[in-house]
Amino acid sequence: MIQTIAFYLFAIMVVLSAGLVITARNPVHSVLWLILAFFNAAGLMLLVGAEFIAMLLVIVYVGAVAVLFLFVVMMLDIDFSELRGGFVRYLPFGVAVALVLLCEIVIAGGAWEAGPVELAGRTALAPDPAAIPNIQALGTLLYTRYLFVFEGAGLVLLVAMIGAIVLTHRARGGVRQQNVRRQNIRRPQDATRNTNPPVGQGVEL
């Protein structure tokens, strides 16, 4: 009973805040609505028992991706009212695309009724969620049976890192670089000296 109420609460909130993401006039507000949508999606994940995915949604999407979105919004120097000028012009095309996608969703949703969802076939792999927590079940498979794709995912992250540096990093002049070796070989006597100035004469620096 509580689960049903919670489901409808989260589901309605997700849809509403997703709608507000695209209708909000201020892009910063859009990002904030997006964060709300992520939180509610995390709630939905919890309801189906996928704890780890729910926490990932909060940690990665809310904690990192949404922050990146905010940065990007703040970095762009765009007149947003001008950007909206084309709205009416592109409206027919946008509505057409939206309708096609809606039809696909409806039909694919209808398919749920038509054919059975054969999740029974995967019982050989998935342990009973009541016996083993979700995250542990995931861990036992991810690092052994799915080793290949796991390391592949590491490479994807590596490419993302190289790509970000190649595209946005440029060497700047006058950068005060950290020189670890110089820091390490520096001794107290190089940096400080004891003086004993007589009263009234001051210190020569």
Binding site: I107, A111, G121, R122
Partner: peptide, 28 residues
């Protein structure tokens, strides 16, 4: 969708499910 309607992610599992009949879900 393929995973949901065939019960596995391997090509073989998908082929087995499709052999049994291509429903709307698998088709999508």
């Amino acid at each position: 969708l393929l995973y949901g309607f065939s019960g596995g992610t391997s090509f073989h599992a998908v082929a087995v499910a499709m052999h049994a009949g291509v429903g709307t879900g698998l088709l999508f």
